[in-house]
Computed example of a mutant assay.
Amino acid sequence: MVKIVRLEPIAQNTEVQTNSNLLSALLAEDLHVLKECGGRGMCATCHVYIKQGMDSLSKMGRREQRTLELITTAKPSSRLACQSRVLGEGIVVEVPAGMYLDAIEDVEALIGRRTEQPLLHPITGEVVVEAGKLVTRSVITELKDIRFQVGQYLARTREA
């Protein structure tokens, strides 16, 4: 059975199979959402806000709770799209505004440019560079280092 999920702030409706996760809906609409941990609820790169319909989603598991506790931008309406299964109607999802740095194929090309939209931290979703501000080499270097460290951590957890 198909459910309709509303995506904000892009004002778009998308169809989702019952019991599919919100991540599949976001990816089906060609929205760039990172899935650093492969959908295991460990990295928070698919963090979204539920504006309506929290009761139409699956219950939050302990792993998702622990991951959301680490995100500084988390709110009571936060969920991980990879862990949120669509069970009913009336769901409105707010996708964080901005662009994750990993969405850009050549990040180095951004250095010294002004951003058209906010650039978001690849793990926490916090705004790293505000819209209209210059992107510095130090910001890019720091984010690459963080991304490498997270990749190492996730590789170790897959082995365990």
Rank of each mutant, 00 (worst) to 15 (best):
L57M: 14
C46G: 01
T67D: 04
L57A: 07
R62L: 12
A81L: 00
A109W: 00
C37D: 10
P76G: 11
D106M: 05
L87R: 08
G53R: 08
I104C: 13
T73I: 12
G112S: 07
E89L: 06
I111Q: 13
C43N: 07
I50E: 10
T73M: 10
A97Y: 13
L70S: 14
T67G: 00
R40M: 09
C82P: 09
C37H: 05
M42D: 03
A103D: 14
L80C: 08
L34C: 02
P96T: 03
C37Y: 05
G88H: 12
I71Q: 15
M99D: 10
E108C: 07
A81D: 04
L57F: 13
E69A: 12
K51I: 12
I104P: 01
V86P: 00
E36F: 12
P96H: 11
G88K: 09
S77P: 00
L68K: 10
R40E: 09
I104N: 11
E105F: 06
C46I: 06
I111T: 13
R63M: 13
M42T: 13
H47T: 00
S77W: 02
V92G: 01
D55C: 01
K35V: 10
K51Y: 06
L70A: 10
G41A: 11
D106G: 01
L87E: 14
Q83P: 01
G98D: 07
T67V: 08
Y49D: 10
A97I: 11
E69R: 13
L70I: 04
D102M: 08
L101Y: 09
Q52T: 04
V107P: 00
G38K: 03
M60V: 14
P96I: 03
G98L: 10
V86I: 12
E69D: 15
T45A: 13
A44W: 02
T72N: 08
V95Y: 15
A44F: 02
G90D: 13
E36R: 01
E36H: 01
K75W: 06
M54F: 10
R63D: 15
D102R: 12
T73Q: 03
A81I: 09
S84A: 15
T45W: 03
M99Y: 05
T73K: 12
M54I: 11
V107R: 13
R40D: 01
L57C: 10
L110G: 02
M60P: 03
C46P: 00
K59N: 07
G112E: 06
D106T: 14
C46S: 05
K75A: 10
T73G: 02
G98T: 05
A103P: 04
L87F: 04
G112P: 03
T45I: 02
T72R: 06
C82R: 02
L68W: 11
A81T: 05
I50Q: 07
R79T: 13
R85F: 07
S78F: 04
G88A: 05
C82G: 04
E69C: 04
G90S: 00
E94P: 01
A74E: 04
I71S: 14
V48I: 15
A97P: 01
M54R: 09
Y49H: 10
S77C: 11
I111E: 15
A109M: 05
Q65I: 09
G41E: 12
V95A: 07
K51W: 01
S84Q: 09
E89M: 05
G112Y: 03
I71V: 15
R63P: 00
D106Y: 02
R85K: 14
M54G: 08
G112R: 11
K59A: 15
